[in-house]
Simulated scan of single mutants.
Amino acid sequence: MRILVWHVHGSWMTAFVQGRHDYLLPLVPDRGPDGRGRARTWDWPASAVEVPAEDLRHTDFDVVVLQRPEEVELVERWTGRRPGRDVPALYVEHDAPRAGAADSRHPLADRKDLKVVHVTAFNRLYWDCGDAPTAVVEHGVVDPGYRYTGASPSLAVSVNEPVRRWRTAGTDVVLHLAAGVPVAVHGMGVLDLAERTHGTPAGANLTVHEDLPQARLHEVLGTHRAYLHPYRWTSLGLSLIEAMMLGLPVLALPATAAPENVPREAGVLSSDPDVLLATARRWIAEPEEARAAGLAAREAAVAAFGVHRFQADWDRLLTEVTS
């Protein structure tokens, strides 16, 4: 099958392109959001092929997998085909609704010709999709292998733009813990956080690492004693799943889909940052307890989020929509 799909979320896309299909990735000259082409920092197979946007009108494909509302118009403009009408289409909803979650209407609500595919059951519960058909395909992650050493008595955090996304990403929670234990923050835009916290008690314990390639990030994450997932509101962070697969024990807020996916033996979920801080201090003092929780985290993540299950779920949907 030839699938037209945009490179929007690198970690999700890395699992998606592992299948048996050909993946056509729109490319624009500046590699902006409307056409990034292939990833530069993830390892993708040769079946993920860049197609210049101007060539799409003369390119054959069997189905389009959309991920942003604007892609509906881009497909029609670039290919002359209307998603859901002239070509089979599915729409992946990566995010939980933002404001007014319980009453949020999905941008594709009532589009009976487009199935909305949620990445968590939490997403489907909270989005109002009206009469649009829906499905859930839980995340899949390419297993990075057990990389845990826990040698560094510190917490790891993966977050992009922690200053702009302050409360949503739980950056204030990160700083609360950093006032008491060393914390390393990885991601894009993290240099802004270093500048903002310079000279503060939290800043003294905070290190930042800007946008490491995925393979290097996995290596570095495994050296930390535990993983902190401070998000107040997110669908289910792929960074959390990857950290669990690496073998890191988890500290997190009991928000959105996290309680369903982090078993008790894999870490501690609490709405009280002081409870998370106390656990971090205990794990720093008792590394074998942290290691045992990390092994449980890996076992749970591999069982729930293996890429083979993910691909099988997607194959069923793709076959259904193109039949």
Rank of each mutant, 00 (worst) to 15 (best):
A280W: 06
F305H: 11
T79I: 09
D274M: 14
A156C: 03
W6K: 07
L318T: 00
T197A: 11
V190P: 03
S154Q: 11
V142I: 15
T200L: 02
Q214P: 02
D211A: 15
I241W: 01
A53R: 15
R31D: 03
L276Y: 00
P153E: 05
L25M: 13
H106Y: 12
D55S: 14
L27Y: 04
G187C: 09
F122G: 03
H58E: 09
A215N: 09
T256A: 15
V63P: 06
H218G: 15
L221K: 08
H118K: 03
L248D: 03
H7V: 04
A46R: 05
T79M: 07
H118Y: 10
H308P: 05
V92Q: 05
V262N: 04
G222F: 06
V190A: 02
A89Y: 07
R36F: 08
E219M: 12
V136D: 07
V307G: 05
D62S: 13
N160T: 10
T14V: 00
D55W: 12
D55K: 14
P29L: 14
S235H: 07
A280V: 08
W166E: 04
A151F: 06
V220K: 15
A204N: 01
L56H: 01
V75L: 05
V173I: 14
D30K: 06
G35V: 13
M188P: 07
A296L: 10
A303D: 13
R2D: 09
G237P: 00
H224Y: 12
A179S: 11
T234H: 08
H218Y: 15
R164H: 09
N205R: 13
P45N: 01
V174R: 07
A39F: 03
A280T: 06
D55C: 13
L277H: 06
E195F: 01
R147K: 11
P201F: 02
A15F: 07
R309T: 08
D43R: 15
R40Y: 05
P263Y: 02
V163G: 04
G170Q: 10
I284L: 07
R20L: 06
A53C: 14
V8T: 10
T120E: 12
L74G: 01
V190S: 04
A278C: 04
H21F: 05
V181Q: 06
A202I: 08
Y91C: 04
P201R: 04
W127M: 07
L125T: 09
R147L: 14
W314F: 13
D274A: 15
